[in-house]
Structure formats: structure tokens, C-alpha cells
Design a binder for these strands. Structure first.
Lengths: 143, 143
DNA sequence: CAGGATCCCGCTAGATACTG
DNA sequence: CAGTATCTAGCGGGATCCTG
């Protein structure tokens, strides 16, 4: 057994995770985080506000998130928050007031995604015009 | 009319696009790019290879992409590539050989997404262990 | 080789109603 | 306030067959 340990370690370190592989669990994780609602929730908890750039990360209440992510259904908001909590990207804190107050906040792990998520949201906004123009060109070329 | 031009310009510049708003087209664009297959295609064309870090961006053939993104169906691969082409993120080049050779390559716009997409893929791989551990903790806590 | 065209299943988003 | 529960329509996405 001891003879295989070193080889196993090297094999494991070499293999690691690779999202290019279908069976790799990181492919599923990628699918989880590469998501519209995840992006918006992380950027919101990360301090981004409408038309302002990055700000200070801080906790938000459920209702605040609901208002911020205009048009999100309770189901999707709750579901996405639960997944993020389970994966350890956000914490959920219940204050026993009447009625209860629930706040969500990014963990360290969640914070490590903040920049990328914010970057993607900003990218979509900043390049919207160009993409729209490209689509026009493409459509007329095909039509 | 001339009197409103300045005000309109300021209003437009101020409003811009905001993916937090449901009706904003950038919300849809966000939904497009925050996608598993988009992430993998952009990173592949961006030069990432299994277990290597970022490399040199370069063109790839359809079959090369298909092999690289293990398990992707032709439908999703073709569909995603078409959308990316329409949005101006990739170019599609047909060489009239027999049989035809089709290559895809990132445009400048697509290249501007390369770092973020690669970052997300790497994040999923590098934090897989921690996420898995967090899920275990969460599940035993709930159970 | 690089798709196009179909069929079809499963999940999942979203709407609605209810609750501690 | 912050959810849970339920239902359903729609479509994402895979499988299969076909083609220039």
C-alpha cells in the first residue's frame, strides 16, 4: 500500500479537477455559478448598485435583494440563495425580531467570486451596444 | 427638438444599461454569456487546455472543440457557436477543402471575455474541494 | 467533416396561493 | 417579512437520423 501512495498523490495532483471533462464535478459547479441569478446576487451582495460601480460588500435582507433584482421570482431568489448557502458562498442570518429579519452576506469564498461576477455584469452592460450592432449586421447578412 | 438633445444625451448616458432591471436588454445578454457552454468555448478558444493554465488564443476546428468539450452535444455546440457568432464574439471561417474545414476564433470582443471566463472555470476547479466540504457540512447540519 | 432537421423528455422557471 | 407548497407551460438539451 505504501508503495502506491506516492504515485497516487502525484496522479491526483496531476489530474485534479477539469471542467472540460463531462464527468468532473467541477463541470456541475461551473454550471451552478455560471448563472444569471448567481451573478446578480453575488454582485448585489458584493456592493454593486444600479449604475454605480463596485462598492463595499455588505449584508442585504431578503426583501432588499428582491427589490434590487427586479423581476426575480421568490422561488428563484430563495432557491439560488439556498444553493449559494449550501455551497458556502453566502451566510444566512436570522434575527428573531417580529417579524423575523433575515440577512444574507458573502463569505470569504463568495467574496473571491465578487470581482469576476461584477466584471461579467459590467461587461454585459458595457458591450450591449456593440453586441446589438453585431446582431443587426449578422441578421441582415443572413436575411 | 434641439433643446431636448442635450437633456436626452445626459439622460441616456445616465441611464445606460443595468442588468439589475428586468426589462434591460443587458439582462438577457447576461443570461447568454453566464452559461456553461459559453464559458467552456471561450476558454477553449482562449487557449486554455485541460490542466494547463491560460495559453495562446487561437482558432479551433469544430471537431476539435467537440473533442475538447467532452460530452457536449452537436446541437448545443452548434447552437452556442451560432449565438456567439451572431453576437460578434467569434468568427466562423469556412475553407473550401474536401471535406470542408470550419474554424472558429475569438474576435476582439470575444477576447475581452477571455480572462473572466477562464477565471470562472479555474475558480470552479480550484474551489471544488471546499464547496464539496461545505455541502457535507450543510447537509449533516440540516439532516 | 460539419453540421441541419426532428422528435421528445425532463426539468425548471414562473405564477399563484398559503403560512409562521 | 420571509419564506413554503403546488401546479403547469415552456424550453433547454440530448438522442437520432440525414446531408452537402
Amino acid at each position: 500500500m505504501a508503495t502506491t501512495t506516492a504515485a497516487q498523490k502525484r496522479a491526483q495532483a496531476k489530474a485534479e479537477y477539469d471542467a472540460f471533462l463531462a464527468q468532473c464535478p467541477s463541470r456541475k459547479l461551473l454550471d451552478r455559478i455560471a448563472d444569471k441569478w448567481v451573478t446578480l446576487i453575488v454582485t448585489a451582495l458584493g456592493g454593486w448598485r444600479p449604475d454605480t460601480g463596485p462598492g463595499e460588500p455588505g449584508p442585504l435582507r431578503y426583501s432588499e435583494l428582491s427589490r434590487l433584482l427586479a423581476g426575480v421570482s421568490q422561488k428563484m431568489l430563495t432557491q439560488t440563495l439556498r444553493n449559494l448557502e449550501r455551497d458556502g458562498l453566502v451566510t444566512r442570518t436570522v434575527e428573531p425580531t417580529v417579524p423575523v429579519t433575515v440577512t444574507y452576506e458573502l463569505t470569504e469564498l463568495g467574496l473571491s467570486l465578487r470581482e469576476m461576477m461584477g466584471g461579467i455584469k459590467s461587461w454585459a452592460q458595457n458591450n450591449m451596444d456593440e453586441v446589438l450592432a453585431n446582431r443587426d449586421k449578422y441578421d441582415t447578412r443572413v436575411a
